[in-house]
């Protein structure tokens, strides 16, 4: 169900995965941004955002994702996305997100491509 908002974090030594569930709007986006910032502050520079359980993203969600890309870029870090629907992938390419972050079909490939 799209109504269930959640963020799962799987932090390994070299990287961390943030998996969202639900509508990526301001509310979920702010939570995601906060968790990403915390990881960046801890020294993580390789992050994966898994959007497999997020079917819906609005413009605020997009701007928050751009913000995370910029925050990581300041630390010379890398952000990879995975689990995107075809429409989301097209949106990311059109919004130039794909220029500054990697897009991969699944988590395993996203991690392997840091």
């Amino acid at each position: 169900m799209l109504n269930k908002f959640d963020i799962q974090i799987r932090a390994e030594q070299e990287y961390a995965v943030l998996e969202t569930a639900g509508y990526l709007n301001d509310s979920l986006g702010e939570q995601l941004s906060k968790k990403a910032q915390e990881l960046i502050e801890k020294g993580y520079t390789q992050l994966v955002i898994n959007l497999d359980k997020t079917a819906l993203i609005n413009s605020i969600g997009i701007s928050i994702l751009i913000e995370i890309i910029e925050a990581l870029d300041e630390r010379n870090g890398t952000l990879n996305f995975c689990g995107l629907s075809a429409t989301q992938e097209r949106t990311f390419r059109m919004m130039a997100i794909a220029k500054y972050a990697g897009i991969f079909p699944d988590e395993k490939t996203a991690i392997a491509n840091f």
């Binding site: 413009s59 701007s63 429409t87 097209r90 949106t91 059109m94 919004m95």
Partner: peptide
């Protein structure tokens, strides 16, 4: 920039949603 991004997103969504 945020405004342009938002408008770009909306226009894209509008164009993308119809065929979908």
């Amino acid at each position: 920039v945020e405004g342009i991004q938002s408008e770009k997103f909306r226009l894209f969504m509008l164009a993308e949603s119809a065929p979908q």
